[in-house]
Design a protein around this nucleic acid. Structure first.
Lengths: 356, 356
DNA sequence: TTGAAAGCGCTAACAT
DNA sequence: ATGTTAGCGCTTTCAA
């Protein structure tokens, strides 16, 4: 156990009793119902403005906090949305979560809105199932799932029977749920096209795990355009065990050892690209002169490199906005005629994918 | 509006009515109280094992999900902890959140445990206050606040009157709350000591915003040890507007332009260090040969650099564990005699802070 | 415009 | 070992 410094303080808490609506009503000599109406956003107009203001002032003064549990129980709605994210260290996922949260919070300005509850799927065997059950027990009005896998289909379907479930970032083919995703096939094609434009003839891709739809689609789009543009792709299917920089380094070693070297490399995400760049340096090669390289996601690191990386911007804003819109609509009306949308990514050309 | 592809699907949802305890009881011909006991973890022994199993099987089969809102209302406790984080893109903060969540979830194995609710403080003017109010209305049993600032003192104190509030990562001097933090002063000193050990005589630090206690303490510790070790620190107080790589680049330009150049540089976090390294490259200097450089936080990027960076490991595990322990203890007993703890950081020597 | 009364689904005290 | 009863704090008819 490493050392630490301790500061010992003992302290008694004054047990502040929370004031409830009944007490507040008694203090003011009005009925609880009047308080409820005065404090609500949709029924406030039913109360005379004088009493309404009197009640609101008194509530603030007394530090009254409505019990959302009780309100939810009575109302049958919690005005809450569960957001389930697979990995909080993933920059794209967190950006999407953030924007969804901001989007939903914006509604609070007018009306009750939806309060987001964020949780990460644990490593446990049934992380997704457990979290979904927790959300349902918390009586969320809807669930947004970020980056679910095909293995989660059953659990999601079960949840979807009770509340609207919206998928974001990654869709699922086994079940038909409203979703907001990125067109990864187009993303892959975009990169290949960029290489073709800059006259590359022999190129390759460092693929993320092909069990993940995202990477499978990027690979497919890239290969498709390679064929269409008459470029030679080598080696076919250089797949990694995880989309992280260390795997990028390993892939680079393989590429550099091969007899036919490509002139351009597409890494399925910026982490893999970074690994490739490091390996290049280790091999005495200069980035970005000795290989053209393009990443994916436009993560912070791709921007702060001494030589910023050409990469693909994930349509974070659009995915987030659509996911939020879907949830809002479905919470308002379960029979809403939703449509899943697939948004186009965009190439950010910073020059590292050109040199032939 | 960038292009997108739309897949239109209309779908009717079968409105699955949630089964409640009363119905389940009726189906089984037992009383609701028996169901409640059978399904609980602490009172299950009061039910005969045969009916207990019968009830549990039926509950699972029927897809019964206890209404936590109702249970909370009745019980007066939600078994829920609000975790408030200022920035979800901050790697250290997210690691702490994760570990706290994992720690609290571990309790679920035996007994009800505490379910964490994670939320990010919005950019709004009163983000902290608003979030605290939301948490209190959700009847959380405790609140953990990550990286609060002195400006949040009042709001936190108000919340602390109702439920235990624990600070993590960053403490507050204005009020006396249980906390789990890092000894940043020692961290700064650690780095200076490292430089002294490797015979540096003229050194400098690129400081994060001095309004933030974390950076102020790192600066103080560093400067203290500089004086004690007889090293010359130049320029005094090179403070940045934000602890990000772009600011690190600016600071580097200033350092490189000065007449007396230091041989070693302490960047208050890895982002600043990265900016410095980039600027070095831009100036035709070689990292890590032309300057010794040490960062802080041991973030992923410091590890994946072609030449990994010497940095300081934040005591994530200890801070998390203590924060979780404080919450658990205080939820169990408000009068628990808590102690705030300050944990020591640790230098990770990867060799970039030696060369003189 | 306000009040009275019922009840959301659960748990805990008490009774059997 | 199980059942009976009351009530957590709120919102929503319905009535005045």
């Amino acid at each position: 156990m490493p050392p630490f410094q301790a500061k010992t303080i003992v302290r008694m808490r004054k047990p502040v009793k929370r004031i409830n609506m009944r007490e507040l009503a008694a203090n003011l000599g009005v009925d609880r119902a009047t308080i409820s109406r005065a404090l609500s956003s949709d029924k406030a107009h039913l109360v005379s403005s004088s009493t309404r203001e009197r009640i609101r002032a008194a509530a603030t003064l007394a530090g009254y906090r409505p019990d959302l549990m009780a309100a939810t129980l009575r109302r049958g709605r919690s005005n809450t949305v569960g957001i389930m994210v697979s990995d909080m260290m993933n920059e794209v996922l967190i950006r999407v979560v953030r924007e969804i949260v901001a989007d939903l919070n914006r509604d609070h300005l007018k009306g009750p809105g939806l309060t987001p509850l964020i949780a990460e799927t644990g490593d446990g065997s049934d992380g997704v199932g457990h979290l979904l059950r927790t959300f349902l027990s918390q009586r969320v009005d809807a669930i947004i799932s970020l980056t679910s896998t095909e293995g989660d289909a059953e659990a999601l379907e079960e949840a979807a029977a009770e509340v609207p479930v919206v998928l974001a970032v990654r869709g699922i083919t086994a079940i038909d749920l409203p979703s907001a995703t990125c067109d990864d096939e187009a993303g892959g094609a975009l990169v290949a096209e960029h290489f073709a434009t800059h006259h590359h003839r022999v190129i390759c891709q460092i693929q993320g795990p092909q069990t993940v739809a995202t990477f499978k689609n990027r690979a497919a789009g890239f290969s498709r355009l390679c064929r269409e543009a008459g470029m030679r792709e080598i080696p076919q299917g250089l797949s990694t065990a995880a989309a992280v920089s260390s795997e990028g380094r390993l892939a680079a070693d393989a590429i550099l050892a091969s007899s036919t070297r490509p002139t351009a490399v597409f890494a399925h995400n910026d982490g893999l690209a970074l690994g490739f760049i490091e390996a290049m340096r280790n091999h005495g090669l200069a980035y970005p002169d000795d290989f053209a390289i393009v990443g994916f996601n436009n993560t912070e690191i791709s921007r702060v490199l001494a030589r910023p990386l050409t990469t693909v911007e994930y349509p974070v804003a659009q995915v987030s906005r659509h996911a939020a819109a879907l949830v809002r609509a479905l919470v308002g009306n379960r029979d809403f005629a939703w449509e899943s949308q697939v948004f186009a990514p965009m190439l950010i050309d910073r020059g590292t994918g050109r040199k032939c």
